[in-house]
């Protein structure tokens, strides 16, 4: 049952992606991107990644959509089709896609329990997490304890991006005030 639900959701994902490519109204693109994020969250629930699904539903479908709509408030909302030929990007994308799909053919089949990914450090996390961190949710114990430095790096990235956004948009507001004063 699990693989069938997963396949159905992934097929819907591909359809939404094609719709995004064809959609020229940017509002349409943003709403389709939001639907896409919710579909990704559903796929993640089927794949047992419940923490990631919650984050994707709130951050991907929520905050990203709000940010995109806020930006659309300030710019034109109809896409102009480019005059350049669209064949080269299509060819490059198709070639890249075929190459990577060829690469994935040697990966272990979907859902097998004895794949190499499940034999490295993860058995140790599953066995010792309660004893070492007293947290039953393995994602929490790995995120905050075993791999705490990752989150430190993530915080640095968000801090830098936040400063960047503030610096870029602070100028906008000041110039707006000057225009009104003139």
């Amino acid at each position: 049952m699990e693989p069938i639900i997963n396949m159905a959701l992934l097929t819907m994902l591909a359809v939404v992606t094609v719709a995004i490519i064809g959609q020229r109204s940017l509002f349409g693109v943003v709403i389709l991107a939001s639907i896409y994020s919710f579909l990704i969250a559903s796929v993640l629930v089927v794949l047992d990644a419940v923490d990631v699904a919650m984050t994707e539903a709130s951050v991907g479908a929520g905050i990203s959509t709000v940010l995109l709509l806020a930006a659309l408030h300030l710019v034109k909302t109809i896409e102009v089709l480019p005059t350049q030929p669209r064949l080269p990007p299509l060819l490059v994308s198709a070639l890249a896609g075929v190459t990577v799909i060829w690469g994935t053919l040697v990966l272990p089949p979907f859902g097998t329990a004895d794949a190499p990914i499940h034999r490295h450090v993860v058995p140790r996390y599953i066995e010792r997490s309660i004893e070492e961190t007293n947290v039953p949710n393995l994602v929490s114990s790995i995120l905050a304890d075993y791999r705490g430095y990752d989150t430190l790096g993530e915080t640095t990235v968000i801090f830098t991006a936040g400063i960047g956004v503030l610096l870029l948009l602070r100028g906008t507001r000041r110039r707006g005030h000057n225009d009104r004063a003139d």
């Binding site: 990644a49 994602v139 995120l143």
Partner: peptide, 28 residues
């Protein structure tokens, strides 16, 4: 396997940070 979940939790938040920065650039 919980390990990819942890890595991707980090990636999602970094993704929205880069999107915000990109949109600020677009507005400018």
């Amino acid at each position: 396997n919980p390990l990819p979940h942890v890595l991707i939790l980090t990636a999602i938040v970094v993704g929205v940070a880069t999107l915000a920065l990109g949109l600020a650039l677009v507005v400018r």
